[in-house]
Amino acid sequence: MRQLMPPPDSPDTAVDDDRLAELYAAGTTEAARWLRVNMVSTLDGAAMGADGRSGSISSDSDKSVFQTLRAWSDVVLIGAETARVERYTRLSHEHGRADVRRPGGPLLAIVSATGRVDVDRLFSADGGQPLLLTCRTADPDAVREFSARAGDDAVLIAGDTAVDLPTAVDELTARGLTRILSEGGPHLLGGLLAADLVDELDLTIGLEARGGEAGRIVQGVRLDTRFAAHTLLGAGDSLIGRWLVSRPESPDGSGRR
């Protein structure tokens, strides 16, 4: 990978793992909470490949950023449908770098209004305690099944008939999980943006066109969210951008709360 923006201080534009960690940590430590979202799309806007999964449009450089972001995070926030399609299991330190800041690696928090999660797949790998973010009208049998495997304190109720995302994020923060990474999907990203919870979008654009009927990285809501460019990296197969949400109260346009 090469650093395209901002221009590096030296003529050497190569980005190794240490430099990648520096670029993605910059500006995050001053905030009491920081929520970033990591997504991938093709040049023509497809958020998934023909198999319905984002992994099939990923690349080696995208995976390097993916691992760096996970190493940075306390918790990975994921929608239940994306967790099913992308075959998520609970997370361990193996999903991040050796210098991951949270002992044992990030936790996995699944957002589901029904409470229905593929617990067999979820617990098919070793890892930390997963969390379920659901609402009061969730399927009680599904919630009990999750609690039986993960523990009663692993279920967080946020909202009545739908998951109230601001409450859910506040619950994570109250548990000390302040470095939050969401990996989608598109409806969850839309909800987080609509609730003004996102501080940063990390988007890898694969330099290809897939066509077809694949949706975009955001679905479900109309938005008017503005971003400021922070970092742009180039690889032979991808453009990788770090974009900060612009908020009026942030004089520098950084999106910092």
Rank of each mutant, 00 (worst) to 15 (best):
L193M: 13
H187W: 03
L207N: 08
I180P: 02
Q219W: 00
L188Y: 01
L181W: 03
A209I: 15
A229L: 15
E183T: 07
L189Y: 02
G220L: 09
L197R: 03
D224T: 09
L223M: 10
P186V: 00
G211I: 07
L197I: 08
H230A: 15
H230Q: 15
D196A: 14
E200G: 07
H187V: 10
Q219M: 12
L181K: 04
V221G: 01
A209Y: 10
G191K: 05
I205F: 11
E213W: 01
E213F: 03
R210D: 01
P186R: 04
E213R: 14
H230R: 15
E200S: 08
H187T: 13
V198Y: 12
G212Q: 06
L223P: 09
L193K: 09
G191Y: 04
F227W: 13
G215M: 01
L188E: 03
E213G: 10
E208L: 14
I217T: 13
E213A: 15
S182H: 04
A209W: 06
R179Q: 10
L193Q: 06
S182K: 06
L188G: 03
V221I: 02
G184Y: 01
L189D: 03
E183V: 06
G190M: 04
V198S: 10
S182T: 09
G215D: 10
D199N: 15
L203C: 09
G185Y: 02
L181I: 05
E213T: 14
I180G: 08
G190Y: 00
R216G: 13
G212I: 08
G212T: 09
L192S: 09
L189N: 12
L203M: 12
H187Q: 13
E213H: 12
G215W: 00
I180L: 05
L181Q: 14
D196N: 13
R210Q: 04
G212A: 11
I217L: 12
H187Y: 08
R226P: 00
F227Q: 06
V221C: 05
L203P: 06
E200P: 07
G185H: 03
G185V: 01
I217G: 05
E213Q: 13
L201A: 11
L203F: 07
T204A: 13
L223S: 11
R210L: 15
V221T: 09
V198Q: 12
L192W: 04
A214H: 10
G212L: 10
L223D: 11
R179L: 01
D196F: 01
L197F: 08
R216D: 10
I180T: 05
G211Q: 04
A229Y: 00
L207M: 14
R179E: 06
T225D: 08
F227G: 12
F227A: 10
T225H: 04
G211C: 08
T225Y: 05
L189R: 09
L203Y: 09
